[in-house]
Nucleic acid binder design. Structure first.
Lengths: 202, 202, 202, 202
DNA sequence: AATGAATGAGCATTCATTCAT
DNA sequence: TATGAATGAATGCTCATTCAT
């Protein structure tokens, strides 16, 4: 069909333009015309690459997840092991989410407007990240560094993810109380209570 | 007097109608006509009691907070004390949030559309609830049941609130893994690690 | 619901405005804004009284049929009888169609754009008129004025209707050849061949 | 030469593609993109061979007339003579129109959308066919097989054409009542009343 | 000669808000 | 106080047409 390279390029332009607008004014208050303009092409061209406005939201959510995942994987210390590795993973996650605060917020607030068929895909990405964390926890348990039951492992994974997200969606309160480093140390302490001391380097 | 009562009555009708619609289709996809109809009066009358559609959202958010607070206070065991009281408070909070899942979700998802001036009011309500929890924790600390620094107390309060909310906004994953009772026990164990055993009665 | 009187009035305005536009430029080239303007109200008001642009077409077709029927019935000589009555009916039909040329043309050309569900209704109106003519023919046959089989009666009715319509849809040729009176006499002679002489008064 | 052949080939592709689409969804609801695709080339190429979408309609109408004419001429028995020949001509016309029902309908319904300059050309084709029939009638009159005045000859020609067309545009009623053969015999009887008996072979 | 990406005017439809009754 | 008809700006989306390659 169409030149795959061009499609990719246009979608990247579109996502970039749309993210900035969604951050600024939300999905519903952003018009397709604005998205087109911000992306650097006409409304007609926009619709050559999407079927409906909601598709833009899906592309945006997908791209944000992809970037969070990429950055996280990049930071993930594969060499470390045990609880120390888990702590570093948590810190890395917090770090990435901090860097992408605005984008993460957009997803939290607009995911509900996703086309019905698209929501499961996006939730699956969230599950993937949760499971990534779960595996790291599992290794700690297997290695004897943590003592947790199956149920508790899953919950801990969810709690870690949510701890990261709340740094953004409760930032009106939390970011006034702590620096990211303080927050990271405190949450690690709380999450892994009784297991270790705060890590120094983040 | 008469007027004030009428205003109150109309607003109650409006909130009741709007909540059900917002739960069903979200704020943006609900029209003022629908709100009026669901409330049992005309669009003209609706605008006698609000200035703009966003005002309805504010009234709704406010009402939801009020109800969560009321129900929570009702359940809060004022007689208990120490860590046991804290656990009961957490369980009560989880219970109330569970009962009002849909409403809490609406707030999470639509608060961003609140009129600029109204957001601080709503955030203040959230702070009030967090501080309510904070005070209970503080009492535990004062009573020696918990050993936490100032910073940690505040964070724990936030974590408790978020743990309650995530029961709704991550329900697509969490409610498949646990019953409310299991979830409550596991979270209490996690939040108050090293301090206590699971409570029996929820 | 809404004031029935007002609905009727608005629809009449709308039909009047739309007919003139459809005659001038056809259904597809007429915009809803133009219809609203020509009707004397705003686009918003237009949509208070219809669900979609196609609904206007249905209302228009329905109204045209109604007027053709009304006028025809008015002219139909109920006193006459036999073949003489049939001739007068044909002449009356031709007369009415001549008066409403433009409207009839609109229907011929735009009926295909009717909403799927509406077409049968409109076709039924055409059948009603055909059957009206059929009954008059049947009376001639019953009275011995005409000798036709069942099959031929129905066909004659259709032929009469089509002869009337072709005065409009072939007017580029036919109205250059004949006056309406000439055309009427010739067609009556052709349709009822071997039965009678041309009528004088039309 | 080469060019002319290519142009011809492309136009044939285009007409073939467009006719099928116009039959399916009408002129206005068919897009130029669809025409290009169905024709087997790109939208850019389409516009190498036409100046506007309306031109496609003209080419289509022209081609349909050409085919109807061709087929009719092919079937026209040049050997016969007098009224018998006329009857065969009518039957042949009905037969051809029956074979090309969909195409004829397209012309009836879309001719009004023809570019202003093109309409006379198409109407001339219709006149040509009418005159073809007129000449055959004239021969009958000259040969003494029919007794008609000048005015009546022309009208009969028009009536014959319209009788053929109504087989398509009133098919929702007529094709439920008669087979093509029945219809042909009945119409011939009606059109040439008092002159002959129904023909046997169609 | 062929392509198809780009364009943007144009369209049907919606909906928050007003105001005469 | 209550009503609901009227408004029109705004929006998502389409599609005939162009033109650089």
């Amino acid at each position: 069909m169409k030149d795959q390279q061009l499609i990719k390029k246009r979608r990247e332009q579109m996502i970039k333009g749309a993210v900035s607008l969604f951050i600024e004014k939300g999905f519903h208050r952003t018009t397709t015309r604005e998205i087109a303009k911000q992306s650097g092409f006409s409304i007609g061209t926009l619709y050559e690459y999407i079927g409906s406005k909601e598709d833009v939201l899906y592309l945006v959510c997908d791209a944000i997840y992809e970037e969070v995942s990429d950055r996280l994987r990049q930071q993930l210390d594969t060499k470390g092991s045990g609880v120390e590795r888990l702590k570093k993973a948590i810190a890395a996650l917090f770090h990435v989410i901090d860097e992408m605060q605005e984008e993460v917020l957009v997803m939290y607030q607009e995911a509900k407007s996703l086309p019905k068929e698209a929501l499961p895909y996006v939730l699956q990405k969230e599950m993937d990240m949760t499971e990534l964390m779960e595996r790291i926890i599992q290794e700690c348990v297997d290695g004897g560094g943590l003592e947790l039951e199956e149920q508790e492992i899953k919950l801990l994974a969810h709690n870690i993810l949510v701890s990261a997200h709340m740094w953004t969606f409760r930032r009106w309160a939390i970011q006034k109380l702590y620096t990211l480093e303080e927050y990271t140390n405190l949450q690690i302490k709380q999450l892994l209570k009784g297991v270790t001391e705060p890590i120094k380097e983040v």
